[in-house]
Design a protein around this nucleic acid. Structure first.
Lengths: 212, 212
DNA sequence: GCAAAAGTGTTATCGATACACCCATGA
DNA sequence: TCATGGGTGTATCGATAACACTTTTGC
């Protein structure tokens, strides 16, 4: 969102806000803020807790403890600015990770943590299928993995690997004919949500971490 | 701890409490509570955030948001009951996971989450070495893994696997002679804290999860 | 010598990768 | 027929796991 109030008025930031009445849980509050601030609804929306951020100095108003949530969903509409927001827009994560788009508070760090979580999530969960239409080809599923991981995958090996996970995707019977090339078989999401074996992503460029 | 005040007075629970003044961060608060309630100090104590628990109904006093931390450290002393605590004691996690020892609030769930996190942590971090003395044998290191994972490992394969991780452990020169058997070489923790490749634990009994 | 624990070698197997190859379609 | 993308076969490599075997000690 583009913030409409101080602090950081006018700066881009993640949508969020304070807990409401004493009956509201933190997950419900995340849903509410997403709806209020960006008009994004809960249907087909996976919300997963990232963690709490509560070091002093992260908010000029004082020590504020925020619980961050990662939302994963396909085909989201354009966000609409709601309460306290001057604007709302999507941006590629690369803009934030590279530092070209600077966010308010410590939201830069929260985004970095969220992206890493999403990338790891694809390895062990069937969430990627949720980013495709009701039925989809294996090549389409591959594009989801490539987009999130930011890598290129071998179509032949991906094809079998994905079929080697029982219950991940099941044949949908039909085929899809595109303008060129052989028609592809269609699949739909299977019953499994945890992947055995996992789809491991290729080695990241080996950050040579020696600390923490 | 054994709780000394309402709610759940007399019941066992994790140590914890409320944030202090407005300058205190959540990590600092976790350290403080551990010191105040259990007299456990910060030296050689790894604290890592588990997550926030904030659903309504988890505390009879109302909607309370707790940020849970997992502490990992070797050779901890007997805990001492401090403020608001009637007692303090260690217990095997199995007592909690099995339900034989019932904890206050939703601390049962928090312990389950923490144990799972600790188990996963050993795969990718060099933390296990921190549970051994300054110098240690590979067999001693193996016992740490076996204790945390609750499995038996092949000493021969473990021996090489662990040496195959560059920078995990480095030879300490000397040997240790026990009452019986060949003396074992001694090692000390190496510079690496993230393990490449990871020490993967054997397959868990394949929980056939189909949801979430 | 014998038991016990440390350490080494060897082999079968599995999964990942790379890539040659065939298949089915539209133009 | 050719280009294009879909799909199959297969060899190589590295990591794992199982386990036979050797080494070094105390008794």
């Amino acid at each position: 969102m583009e913030r409409g109030v101080e602090p950081y008025e006018g700066d881009p930031a993640l949508p969020g806000g304070f807990l409401n009445n004493v009956e509201e849980g933190i997950l419900a509050a995340a849903h509410r803020e997403l709806r209020e601030e960006a008009d994004l609804d809960a249907s087909r929306l996976h919300l997963e807790q990232l963690g709490a951020y509560g070091e002093p100095g992260r908010d000029p108003r004082g020590r504020v403890v925020s619980v961050a949530y990662l939302a994963i969903a396909p085909g989201l509409p354009e966000p609409v600015a709601g309460t306290d927001a001057a604007g709302a827009f999507w941006t590629p994560v690369e803009e934030v990770l590279s530092g070209r788009l600077k966010l308010a508070f410590d939201h830069q760090q929260i985004v970095a943590d969220g992206v890493e979580r999403a990338r790891a999530k694809l390895e062990h969960s069937a969430l990627a299928a949720a980013f495709c239409a009701e039925t989809f080809t294996i090549a389409e599923l591959q594009k989801v993995y490539e987009a999130v991981w930011g890598v290129q995958l071998d179509p032949r090996n991906f094809y079998r690997k994905v079929q080697g996970v029982p219950g991940f995707i099941v044949p949908a019977g039909a085929e899809r004919r595109t303008t060129k090339g052989r028609p592809a078989r269609l699949f739909r999401a299977g019953p499994r949500t945890v992947l055995h074996p996992p789809l491991v992503r290729p080695d990241t460029p080996m950050t040579n971490e020696v600390d923490q």
